[in-house]
Design a protein around this nucleic acid. Structure first.
Lengths: 336, 336
DNA sequence: TTGAAAGCGGTACCAA
DNA sequence: TTGGTACCGCTTTCAA
């Protein structure tokens, strides 16, 4: 079935080594032979078996990406951006989704390690560090995306989430809102950072809100819109009603908006909304959504480039943190 | 660094073979030895090197998925569904995007073949058959998703697109529209099928529309919303203005809706819109979008199951076509 | 029930 | 410039 180096060697009456060297542009092969070999390779549509090559070189030209939810455009955009950069260097990317389940995530990581990927990208839903130790044991470089873990010195690419929360809340204050609520989610660092930023903005402007104004929706992103909807419903039963809600991400904001509109209230007249992520299509929504752009394209691109750099240097350099600048995108959901 | 079978064998003072067999539950190993081996494997967190295993068994436990646009929820939902099924059988999935570029697609396929994936899933942007012959040469099973190629006898999973087009157009007729336009895209089978269905519905109801009512937006899905917008703008300059537009997919419909609203016209009062795909979040849009659901979850799931079945049977069974039932989802964009 | 040898398809290293 | 040999980590086959 598949053509092997041996076949070509026999076919051409040279040794297997000649083929191997010609293929990789080894310097010590004559121009004539190389041409002849390459021509035959082309004709027979030969492709070296990467598994065999990996076995001896230790490089698989395979990287792994683990995201909490592949359908969330934030992550699929990151995946896409990473892919684009890696493709140019002939790397392939195994993409898996953990469905926001730490245990599943760990399984996937183990599976990828068994495959000896050259590098791992992880938007982790984990809180324990143990799994990462295992990655380090294998000396596989890895890069955390979007979410970081306290106490873990690892490569990280994301935004300054405290800044994100501050920016969003400040914007709401500046358009005159005072009863600003927040919908967050537990555990993951971006949500925690954004909550902290929200708090700082309120404090800085001397605004106090009822304790019930901070709600934490269950779990992670996987069903952000559905749980965002439910939590917003709860928020709508509180008096005084908030006049603004800052949501920790766009899908949650989407669900919240739906809940508000369902009740017959108006956005932004009655309640203004800010999301996070500037997910694709968020300007096509029922009410176009004001959001904090995290430039996910850039996150993916920078991550991929960092990965390639890590593989270049023989010794593992010490972990690098890249923080991208968040950017406020104002749309109708906060427009007067 | 990584623990190998040899290490465990030495550690336990048995032969490498004992480990290998214990690991795979080979019958001829004593219960005691097996237990002892498995325990140590657990402790050392040993994972067999899949590349090495692949080299000898010829099975990589790796499959490949090529889609035109990973950020398009239609495809990321399919990817997710495939992943879920495969994960249970310990397969990994390499996911790549062709960006609607046939040449890039071919490169990606070649790369995946070099990796000797066990099976390929392709939502192809190709029109030539040559690339598929190459897959067949390697005897790698493959499954076409969503888009099929005329003249290629291959496994296919998707919907009956002619039916989709018919259904959508019939719905517009039934709500009283007569000046029904269509925005399609060239080359790919779903778009062609839907156009045919559109034509049949008009014919069946004795409706004639100006030739200019059928517009083909450039290229594929990658920027459906942007090109949908542009093409709709053109459509809006035609007189008499259409009172309905059937778009070949949701992103295109999104762009078209934006163009209509920008002009100050109302949806559905002035122009009703139907899309295709029932992409996630399409009920949260400016005007919730009537669409034809293709059940992409099911496409992915069926595809993955078929793949596993193909790998089970020793001889390549003859190509199978699975057509899922399309389903009309009525929302505000066609509501009176 | 256990183990030794051969080999999967390549590459590294060294000899001719 | 070319080619032989060992070996990457594992499985298959067969002998002990």
């Amino acid at each position: 079935m598949a053509v092997r180096m041996k076949d070509i060697a026999q076919d051409l009456g040279v040794s297997l080594m000649t083929i191997s060297k010609a293929l990789r542009n080894h310097p010590d092969i004559s121009e004539g032979t190389r041409k002849r070999v390459l021509k035959r390779i082309e004709e027979l549509n030969y492709r070296p078996n990467l598994a065999a090559r990996a076995l001896v070189t230790g490089k698989t030209y395979l990287m792994g990406l683990v995201v909490p939810d592949l359908v969330h455009p934030f992550f699929s955009q990151i995946a896409n951006a990473i892919s684009k950069v890696l493709r140019e260097q002939r790397y392939s990317l195994v993409i898996t989704s953990s469905q926001e389940d730490p245990e599943l995530e760990q399984q996937e990581i183990d599976q990828l390690l068994a495959r000896s990927v050259d590098c791992l990208f992880i938007a982790s839903t984990q809180t324990a560090l143990e799994g990462f130790r295992r990655i380090e044991d294998q000396e596989t470089p890895y890069i955390l995306l979007d979410r970081k873990l306290p106490g873990l010195a690892a490569n990280f690419i994301g935004v300054d989430d405290e800044q994100v929360g501050f920016m969003a809340t400040k914007h709401l204050i500046e358009i005159g809102r005072r009863r600003i609520a927040h919908i967050g989610t537990p555990r993951v660092s971006p949500a925690l950072g954004r909550l902290a930023g929200y708090r700082r903005a309120l404090r800085q402007y001397g605004i106090r809100v009822p304790a019930g104004y901070v709600l934490i929706r269950p779990h992670g992103d996987d069903a952000g819109d559905a749980t965002g909807y439910d939590v917003m419903k709860k928020l709508l039963s509180i008096r005084p009603l908030p006049d603004a809600v800052f949501c920790h991400n766009d899908p949650t904001a989407l669900g919240a908006m739906k809940a508000i509109l369902d009740t017959g209230l108006k956005i932004p007249e009655d309640i203004a909304i800010v999301g996070c992520g500037n997910v694709k299509y968020s300007d096509c929504l029922r009410v176009p959504l004001t959001t904090i752009d995290q430039d996910c394209e850039a996150i993916g691109e920078r991550a991929a480039k960092l990965a390639l750099k890590l593989l270049d240097s023989k010794t593992l350099p010490r972990p690098k943190t890249i923080l991208l600048k968040p950017r406020l995108v104002v749309r109708d959901s906060t427009r007067r």
